[in-house]
Structure formats: structure tokens, C-alpha cells
């Protein structure tokens, strides 16, 4: 329950802060130098809403497995982007919460993402266990 609230709540907040200022988020994406400007624009418009709906779905226990799948994919992608930025020596904000909330550096964002991945793993395992238990009844 606590894992779901923390993970879902964080993704919901992260999505809302990015959706509030997609132009700012597009700039944050651009700073990673991983995708062309247009790709960053499309991501800045789409990704916040995926985070909002995935986070919301997790909180409401609707489409839970799908939400977990998307959150896992996003966390893996974010970690890859952060590690790539770190490897290239980029001194940038992580942009994890858009511009509405002060961003953190790359190292701290990686630690946080690792924690969130653990929470996701716990939810996968317990979700599957409870799914099996209910199917055995």
C-alpha cells in the first residue's frame, strides 16, 4: 500500500509539474543532447501525461500492471539518460520535476531512481503474488 502511494504519488506530482510547463521541460530534455529538438518537444508534451495517468492508475489500483510496466520503462530510460549525461560530464539539472520544483543534480536523481526501481520491483513481486493467490482461490 505504502509503496504504491509513494510511487504513484511521485509520478503523479512529477507529471503535473512537467505538464504545467512543457516548454521548460522541453528545454530540460534538450540539455541532455540525446534527442533532436523536435523529439524533445514531442516528449515534453506526451511524457508528463503518461506519468500522470500511470501514477494515477497506480494510486487508484486500476490498470495496475500496465501502469507498473510503464513506470518501469520510464525509470529505466531516465536512469540511462542520467548515466549518459554523467558519463559525458554534463553539468545539468535532472529536470525530473520540470521547473516548478527545484531540480536536483544527476547523482541524487540516480539514487532516487534506484530507490523507485526497488519500490517498483516490490510492487511487481507482491502484485504477482496476490494475483496468483486470488487465482488459486
Amino acid at each position: 500500500m505504502a509503496c504504491r502511494v509513494i510511487l504513484g504519488g511521485l509520478f503523479l506530482i512529477a507529471g503535473v509539474t512537467k505538464a504545467y510547463d512543457p516548454a521548460g521541460f522541453a528545454t530540460e530534455i534538450q540539455n541532455y543532447h540525446l534527442v533532436p529538438w523536435l523529439g524533445g518537444v514531442l516528449l515534453s508534451l506526451f511524457l508528463p501525461w503518461v506519468e500522470i495517468f500511470a501514477g494515477g492508475a497506480l494510486l487508484l489500483k486500476r490498470f495496475e500492471q500496465g501502469a507498473l510496466l510503464l513506470i518501469s520503462a520510464m525509470l529505466i530510460a531516465y536512469c540511462a539518460a542520467l548515466i549518459s549525461a554523467m558519463a559525458r560530464g554534463l553539468n545539468i539539472d535532472c529536470g525530473c520535476f520540470g521547473r516548478l520544483i527545484s531540480s536536483t543534480g544527476i547523482a541524487w536523481a540516480l539514487v532516487r531512481n534506484a530507490g523507485l526501481m526497488i519500490l517498483t520491483g516490490i510492487l511487481w513481486i507482491f502484485g504477482k503474488a496476490s494475483g496468483q493467490a486470488s487465482s488459486e482461490k
Binding site: 505538464a19 504545467y20 510547463d21 512543457p22 516548454a23 521548460g24 521541460f25 522541453a26 528545454t27 523536435l38 524533445g40 518537444v41 515534453s44 508534451l45 506526451f46 501525461w49 503518461v50 500522470i52 495517468f53 500511470a54 492508475a57 490498470f63 495496475e64 500492471q65 500496465g66 501502469a67 507498473l68 510496466l69 510503464l70
Partner: peptide, 30 residues
């Protein structure tokens, strides 16, 4: 089931993303 649900979430997210691209006051320049 997880993949199907994820696709539904992605599909639903497309709607506000499209609206934001057209009407959001802070939408990014193309």
C-alpha cells in the same frame, strides 16, 4: 494484460498531450 493496459494508458495520454500542443500557454516552440 500488462502490455494491453500500458497501451491503453499511452493512448489516453495522447489526448491531453495533443490538446497541450495546441492550446497550452507554455507549449514549446516546434
Amino acid at each position: 494484460t500488462a502490455v494491453r493496459q500500458a497501451l491503453w494508458i499511452l493512448l489516453v495520454a495522447l489526448v491531453p498531450a495533443f490538446l497541450a500542443s495546441a492550446f497550452h500557454p507554455k507549449r514549446p516552440a516546434w
